[in-house]
């Protein structure tokens, strides 16, 4: 018994093989496609609000043994990831090290703000961070991730081949969905869908949040309900963790239905299947 405990203790100090930790499941899927032999885990399961996650010791322990940490960037994980990296005591994944991988590096950002302050609510001045629902942006993110994997001494030729295949898969799905999705107008709860605007000619007319990240007042919802008669949005799109109470209230006022959409795939879900499901859910296509 004592020997077993001692062995566990000693093993905890020993080195681990190459492994990758991602903050979101979609990036784990990208890594699996680029380097199938690597061990990959995602910290989040896709059901959380990635803005509001605690720097839990469970995450610290996972990051502590990683060779590479891939994250969304654009300040999506600003509240918790820096603390996790710091507490991990893992030199390989600290900012500036080879194992620190910002997937947004090559992504074409939207809504970059030159002038901002916190009266504007939960805004991200370096760009809207919700790009992972966009297939073209995920091709760019995969490119950033490929660049990080190259630094891990993985066969570059094989990596480039896999990247090419992955980019083709993502693009093929994009072309396929584009033929299926018809232009529509929506209201949204939060600005999580804006990257889809250009991709599929969708229009997100107004947000139920007057100030991003702040619960809207009843007065504002009533005003919006009146405006919706003119705007005629097909439905209200909301992220999985958006407050149901507010969505129900607006539905009652405006008689417009809402749909709660998962913004990230589950850990073992195929990203392409997930996107197809989401897009069809958004546009109510069969």
């Amino acid at each position: 018994m004592y020997i077993k405990t001692l062995l566990i203790f000693v093993l905890s100090f020993s080195a681990y093989g190459q492994s990758v930790v991602t903050t979101l499941p979609e990036f784990a899927w990208v890594v699996k496609n680029l380097a199938p032999n690597l061990k990959v885990i995602s910290l989040l399961e896709g059901t959380e609000d990635p803005h509001f996650v605690d720097a839990s010791p469970g995450f610290v322990f996972k990051v502590a043994k990683a060779d590479l940490v891939v994250f969304n960037g654009l300040q999506l994980e600003i509240g918790w990831l820096p603390k996790i990296l710091e507490l991990s005591g893992n030199e390989k994944v600290q900012m500036g090290s080879k194992g620190y991988c910002d997937a947004s590096k090559d992504v074409q950002k939207i809504e970059v703000l030159n002038n901002f302050n916190r009266s504007m609510g939960d805004v991200h001045p370096v760009g809207n961070p919700h790009y992972s629902l966009s297939l073209p942006r995920m091709i760019e993110a995969a490119q950033s991730i490929r660049d990080c994997l190259v630094l891990m001494d993985i066969d570059e030729v094989k990596l480039n081949e896999n990247y090419k295949k992955l980019a083709e898969k993502l693009n093929a799905k994009f072309v396929e969905l584009k033929t299926k999705i018809k232009p529509q107008n929506f209201y949204v709860y939060h600005r999580e869908f804006n990257y889809l605007k250009k991709d599929f000619n969708l229009d997100f007319l107004k947000s139920l949040e007057k100030v991003p990240g702040v619960l809207p007042s009843a007065t504002y919802l009533s005003k919006l309900a009146i405006e919706s008669k003119k705007d005629k949005p097909s439905q209200v799109l909301a992220g999985y963790t958006s407050p149901r109470k507010i969505l129900e209230k607006f539905k009652e006022l405006a008689h417009i239905d809402y749909v709660k959409i998962p913004l990230h795939p589950k850990p073992d879900e195929d990203y392409l299947d997930f996107i197809e499901k989401v897009m069809l859910q958004i546009t109510k296509n069969p």
Binding site: F9, L11, S12, P57, F61, K65, L87, S88, G89
Partner: peptide
């Protein structure tokens, strides 16, 4: 000095 002991999920 603070040390993560991974096998025990402890610090």
């Amino acid at each position: 000095y603070k040390r993560n002991i991974l096998a025990l999920n402890s610090t």
